[in-house]
């Protein structure tokens, strides 16, 4: 069936099978491979994108569920070639190693600050509980979110 999704500000119309997951739609149909797949049980959060501004796991939604809605992926966060404050903070604070969890982590963290612009350390850790990182032990991810929060 045909769906139209606004992805990173661009309206995209494609024909998809009803069973195609949103993450596969983004990666395979639109070539937006920044959104990753790390699991099959909605645990890892590598696939996190913003759907109408809220963080969702794009592996647990069908593409058709995004019809007529707005999706922001990691590729849509930076504007005019300038890194988003959260991307900058992950870079500055060494919040990534292999970088595979990173797009989902950054998108989740953006949504976290959206809801709570001044989170405590505990609130950051809790807020990122749906995103797994195997490399960093989270210490520098927490610092990155704190930096982005300070940046406002």
């Amino acid at each position: 069936m045909n769906i139209t999704v606004q992805v990173n500000g661009v309206s995209e119309t494609r024909s998809v099978e009803p069973r195609v997951l949103l993450v596969h739609f983004l990666r395979e149909n639109l070539g937006l491979t920044g959104t990753h797949v790390g699991c099959d049980t909605s645990q890892c959060g590598a696939c996190t994108v913003l759907l109408d501004g809220a963080a969702v796991k794009s592996c647990s939604l069908f593409a058709v569920q995004a019809d007529g809605r707005k999706v922001t992926t990691i590729e849509g966060l930076s504007t005019d070639g300038k890194l988003h404050a959260m991307q900058q903070a992950f870079w500055d604070q060494h919040g990534l190693q292999c970088g595979f969890c990173t797009p989902g982590m950054i998108v989740s963290a953006c949504h976290l600050l959206e809801r709570n612009p001044n989170p405590s350390e505990a609130e950051i850790r809790e807020g990122l509980e749906g995103n797994l990182c195997r490399c960093t032990g989270y210490a520098n991810i927490v610092k990155a979110v704190q930096q982005a929060a300070r940046a406002g």
């Binding site: 990666r27 491979t33 920044g34 992926t73 990691i74 890194l83 870079w91 990534l96 970088g99 990173t102």
Partner: peptide, 18 residues
């Protein structure tokens, strides 16, 4: 600061499945 990060924080990494 890591030179690999600009591509990785912007979703421009180049993983096998990509």
């Amino acid at each position: 600061k890591r030179r690999e990060d600009p591509r990785l924080v912007t979703g421009k990494g180049n993983f096998v499945d990509d």
